[in-house]
Computed example of a mutant assay.
Amino acid sequence: MNAINWPEGFVPGFSDNYCSNEVIVAGLTTQDIWPLLNTPALWPTYYKNSANARFYDNKGPELEQDVRFYFETFGFPVESQVTEYVAPAEGQPARVSWHGWSGEEGAADRLDVLHAWLIEDLSDNRVRILTQETQNGQPAKELAVASPNPMINGHQDWLDGLVAAARAKKA
Rank of each mutant, 00 (worst) to 15 (best):
R95N: 05
P88M: 03
A94F: 04
Y56A: 08
D66S: 14
D66W: 15
Y47V: 03
Q65P: 00
L63H: 01
R54W: 04
E79G: 13
W98T: 01
F55M: 03
K59P: 04
E79K: 13
Y47G: 03
A94M: 08
A87E: 08
S97K: 07
Q92C: 14
G60E: 02
F69N: 02
N58D: 11
Q92R: 15
N52P: 05
R68M: 09
K59V: 02
Y70P: 11
E90K: 03
R95A: 05
Y56M: 10
R68C: 10
V82D: 01
G91Q: 06
E84F: 12
P61G: 02
S97Q: 09
V67M: 03
N58K: 14
F71S: 04
G75T: 07
N58Y: 05
Q92F: 14
S50C: 11
E79P: 11
G100R: 09
A51C: 05
G100N: 03
E90A: 07
V96L: 11
P88D: 09
N49G: 10
G60P: 05
E90G: 04
S97N: 11
Y85S: 05
V82L: 03
G91A: 07
Q81N: 10
V78W: 11
H99Y: 13
E64F: 05
S80Q: 11
H99L: 15
P93Q: 07
Q81P: 12
T83W: 04
G100K: 09
V67C: 08
D66A: 14
S80F: 06
Q92E: 15
K48H: 14
A89C: 12
P88L: 01
H99D: 13
A53K: 07
S102I: 04
S50Y: 10
V78A: 12
E84A: 14
P93H: 02
R54D: 05
D66V: 10
A87Y: 00
G75C: 10
N52M: 08
E79C: 13
G60R: 01
W101R: 00
A87H: 02
Y47S: 11
D57W: 01
F76N: 09
N52H: 13
E72R: 12
E84Y: 14
V78S: 10
P93T: 10
F76W: 13
Q81M: 15
W101C: 04
S97R: 09
E90P: 01
P88E: 06
F71M: 09
G91K: 05
